[in-house]
Design a protein around this nucleic acid. Sequence first.
DNA 1: GCACCATTGACCGTTTCGGTTATTTGTGCT
DNA 2: AGCACAAATAACCGAAACGGTCAATGGTGC
Lengths: 201, 201
Amino acid sequence: MEKFLALSIKKQDTIRNAALACFAKHGYEKASINDIAVAAGISKASIFQYFGNKQALYQYLFDYCATQMKQAYNTSVLEETTDFFDRVWEASVMKVENLKKHPHIASFIASVAAEPMPELKGAIFSETNEKYIASLVLHEQDYKKFRHPEDAELVFQMLMLLAKGMSVQLENGVDYDGMMKEFREILNMLKHNFYKEEYLL
Amino acid sequence: MEKFLALSIKKQDTIRNAALACFAKHGYEKASINDIAVAAGISKASIFQYFGNKQALYQYLFDYCATQMKQAYNTSVLEETTDFFDRVWEASVMKVENLKKHPHIASFIASVAAEPMPELKGAIFSETNEKYIASLVLHEQDYKKFRHPEDAELVFQMLMLLAKGMSVQLENGVDYDGMMKEFREILNMLKHNFYKEEYLL
DNA sequence: GCACCATTGACCGTTTCGGTTATTTGTGCT
DNA sequence: AGCACAAATAACCGAAACGGTCAATGGTGC
């Protein structure tokens, strides 16, 4: 695996992305090294040269994703943001910026979770997503801004669903910036319709 | 293929579901007849007995899904429903009822679209989803109910995203009825916050 | 016990699998 | 130019899995 790390960053990235995409799409068993090699534009033998065997490649990708995801979310910024909708917005921006930079990580991790490999599942998921959602959670000061404070929690759940829908769209190739612009408008609209007037500037 | 249709309805259903699930999960090339046979609890040879070869099985499943989907949406009911949120609700109920009855059709069709088979793609997609969304579209009478009529279109787009997020949740095994209950509550909440008071009973 | 037919275990030739090795290719040095 | 050395790959390996076939099996009505 030192062989791989000696490659240029660009080539590393190409190979990693090809491997992540193939494993994400087909799962561990059905993704063949040949698929990955073709997708990366190199020979099958090179992949064995770099990683030794299939399982070691998979493990490397998993570890790589784990460290990347831990760096992805800056939860301290979220804790400083007092308004609920702004907090959701900032978390979404983080998520999308991360998705832009590492487009295949999310789908790879999702595919790992679908794999019958019990030992890996727990570790990564409890970090990352759960943690970042936890820092979004409604505070006491948020409720009172709502015209109907009892709506706040349902709005929260609605936004989680909305985020899931957005993820699907982004995976299907929808333009990132256009999607984010639309989401910003949606959040503003919700604010204007759900908040008491005194909390609208 | 007459051999297959001579089977009991229950057995047909088991085999169809196994095949749909396998093709949906792995795609045409990577889904093997053996996978399907095991999933269906029958022998590989039987599948060739019933369908002749792999491609014929795939074609049968595609045709089966096409006819099922055409029956799925009762657009006339939608046209009779005057309120926008109610219309969205009824369309969602139809969609979910259909998903309950045929849990694997949606994911199979989605996987067909991802397949590099240009000839099939167009046909089925322009039917079904597009048509049912078309009958949801905002009418003139809808706009004026909104406190801010210019919000209506964005609400529409938001609901489309929301529906996508719900589909993901349902595919991931989330309880149908619980999800629908939540969605009903969300729609009611949106109505109460977006509509002028005079349009709330 | 026998005829009938749905079902399947065993098998076919071929392809693809993960993995190895010997050869080619590129590169820097003299 | 020629040489040494490493990087990349074409060619190859045995094993497994592929789509597909077929003869043997097993259950059912008579």
